[in-house]
């Protein structure tokens, strides 16, 4: 029957598609690399790491600075550019987080694309474990993170919640605080539990 033959052709073409797809996508890698928003945010994050002091605690690695990411796929893949960078003599290591309880050893946690109620629990846990949390919500008043990225025109700015920084036991350099969009008062209001 012709329909059966036709159908077999379909299977064949499906297999051809599968075989050639990786080859096609390999070519795409040759294109010039445009800088995107997450690369810039990754570069910012590296600077945050250099301008923050963590308390001495036994539960964090001493030789390494652990930068953790949680949430959307593009974030996870782009942040790999700040793996193995020098941060004040320590080497940065990127860790992808899938479960809330795995964040305890992180120095920095960048989080995006997670349900608000879950985020709140993660931020709460982060404060107990001295983690510099970073979000990218429309405004820091909607976040419980220490740092929040915002878009301003074609540029990226950041906001710092000094109250949450203190609660997390972090010492943030005045150089960073000066550049942050909002200064450190009026945070108690947003620092809800």
């Amino acid at each position: 029957m012709t329909t059966v033959k036709h159908y077999k052709n379909r299977i064949l073409s499906f297999m051809i598609v599968l075989i050639f797809l990786p080859a096609l996508s390999g070519n795409a890698a040759l294109r010039p690399n445009l800088t995107d928003e997450y690369q810039l945010k990754a570069a910012f994050t590296l600077n945050f790491a250099r301008l923050t002091q963590w308390p001495q605690t036994p539960n964090k690695p001493q030789e390494q600075l652990l930068i953790c990411v949680m949430g959307n796929e593009l974030l996870k893949s782009t942040f790999s550019i700040i793996n193995e960078q020098n941060i004040n003599g320590k080497q940065s290591r990127l860790k992808i987080i899938t479960r809330r309880h795995d964040i305890k050893t992180c120095h920095i946690l960048m989080i995006s694309g997670i349900k608000q109620s879950n985020m709140r629990q993660i931020f709460k846990l982060s404060r107990q474990h001295n983690i510099l949390t970073i979000s990218e919500l429309p405004d820091i008043s909607q976040s419980e993170a220490v740092v929040n990225f915002i878009d301003e025109g074609n540029k990226i700015k950041f906001q710092i919640n000094h109250y949450h920084a203190r609660q997390s036991g972090l010492k943030i350099s005045s150089r960073l605080l000066k550049l942050a969009q909002i200064s450190s008062h009026n945070y108690k209001k947003s620092g809800r539990e």
Partner: peptide, 15 residues
């Protein structure tokens, strides 16, 4: 981009 200071990063326009 990774070599830039944070002050410079604030002035960068992205795609």
């Amino acid at each position: 981009i990774l070599a830039l200071d944070i002050e410079d990063l604030l002035n960068i326009e992205v795609t």
